[in-house]
Design a protein around this nucleic acid. Structure first.
Lengths: 245, 245
DNA sequence: GTCAATACTTTGTAAGCACATTTTCACGTT
DNA sequence: AACGTGAAAATGTGCTTACAAAGTATTGAC
């Protein structure tokens, strides 16, 4: 087991344990360390890097929590032999399309600044009847219409423009305003398409839709966005990776 | 902010930080602490309970990681004002139904000990053609058929009985054998039901199915189970809670 | 009375130490 | 030679201390 070449910058504002955790993560995910490989033990590593054991331990714990490493008392720490061990994450076909180099396109169908929707208002923690910003978008994968995305935002966001949404995407616009969605609760189901949805998405037969409603919150738990999306089931699926401690 | 009545048993084999974390979790989830409430600060709590600050801090960190609490430097720690805090968990539908107070029932439609399925074999990390244990179950919620559950297990599990599966559930049987699924990769989508599925699930119209394929792994990353489930879309949806750091 | 500098509170990071628990391995006894 | 015991190795738990950083509140000068 070769000693990993780790560089720690004590003058950096980035915490030491995080610097270490990032470099260890890189070593595992780029294949420098193979699944099953033994890991340098905590005492040796803290000695070699002139870090305290708690600091090293905290860095390793980050990888353990992500499922990249397995600790066994009396044995040592080894690299988990599973590729995909990301902590509960959500990816979608849309992300896959981007990874494949295809260019998804979004068209804003409507942008209304004083829409009423009681379900959305409730999800946003606002009283029923509150005028909301309502966005309906159509998302293409290449030339194929893939999904209808309906989203609602609090009334304070009423100066959004169609152009912003089409070029940057909804979440990028939110982040640019200092709003950082951190937690989201998503409900995934299925239903048949309405006639209009079938027209909009160019669906020929009675192919079903995958539906997803999402409430997103910032770090404080304040609601920032509510969405109701539907996707062509033949073009879309959701990958979820769940893990227990 | 009232001081919570915490009981710590130093003679217990359960780690102190975990005892504390459990009692704090209970206080948050049973409503003793309301969203937005200020939390006793770390120093005061460690002083009051005669625990060190790192121990208290570690307990609080558990809740923060689960999304129950929010820490702000200079401010203090507060209860997150969000309803559903559960981190994406690895549970079966059976567990979900029990939580909702419904009485689920499972009927084993078939239990084959030398089934062949190349997709399942690949998911289990076994060569194609390996004989697998194949289970097909029908899940009821009350009197309503809800889902068809197809599962495959490695050949070593060929002594399962129908009765075990019907009374305890698949995951309980696995756990009883020391197999602890820890990580799962799930793909959720939708499709139309076949004629046979429609018959089995007593579906009248062309109602779609929610589909979920799942590969489950233990802590080492070894595959332990592969499942291909389909649910009546009008009766079922999947909740996922995603959180970013 | 207003504004700015300062003090205080609270969480964030880091180090060092001690001992417990679990597993492996080598040594010594029978 | 076989077995058991104990040493060694590695992670797990817990305490103490110190200082940094961020936010709030107070105090003081103008």
């Amino acid at each position: 087991m070769a000693a990993l070449p780790i560089q720690i910058d004590r003058s950096s504002p980035v915490p030491l344990y995080h610097q270490l955790a990032e470099q260890l993560t890189a070593a595992v995910s780029d294949g420098t360390l193979r699944p099953g490989d033994a890991f340098e033990n905590e005492l040796a590593m803290s000695d070699r890097l002139n870090l305290s054991r708690p600091t090293v331990r905290r860095a390793i714990s980050e990888l353990v929590n992500k499922g990249l490493l397995v600790r066994r008392r009396g044995i040592g720490t080894t690299v988990a032999n599973q590729m995909v061990h990301r902590r509960a994450e959500l990816t979608s076909l849309y992300d896959d399309l981007i990874r494949e180099g295809r260019t998804p396109r979004t068209e804003v169908l409507s942008l209304i600044c004083s829409a009423q929707d009681d379900r959305a208002a409730e999800a946003l923690g606002l009283p029923p009847g509150t005028p909301l910003v309502s966005i309906v978008r159509l998302r293409y994968a290449g030339d194929l219409p893939l999904a209808i995305l309906r989203n609602w935002l609090p009334p304070a966001m009423d100066d959004l423009t169609t152009k912003q949404l089409e070029t940057d995407g909804l979440y990028a616009v939110l982040r640019a305003r200092g709003i950082r969605p951190t937690v989201a609760r998503q409900r995934i189901g299925a239903r048949n398409a309405t006639a209009e949805e079938r027209r909009t998405l160019h669906m020929s037969k009675a192919e079903p839709l995958v539906t997803m409603t999402r409430s997103a919150y910032d770090a404080d738990g304040s609601p920032v966005e509510f969405g109701d999306h539907c996707y062509r089931a033949d073009q879309y699926s959701v990958d979820v990776i769940v893990s227990e401690r």
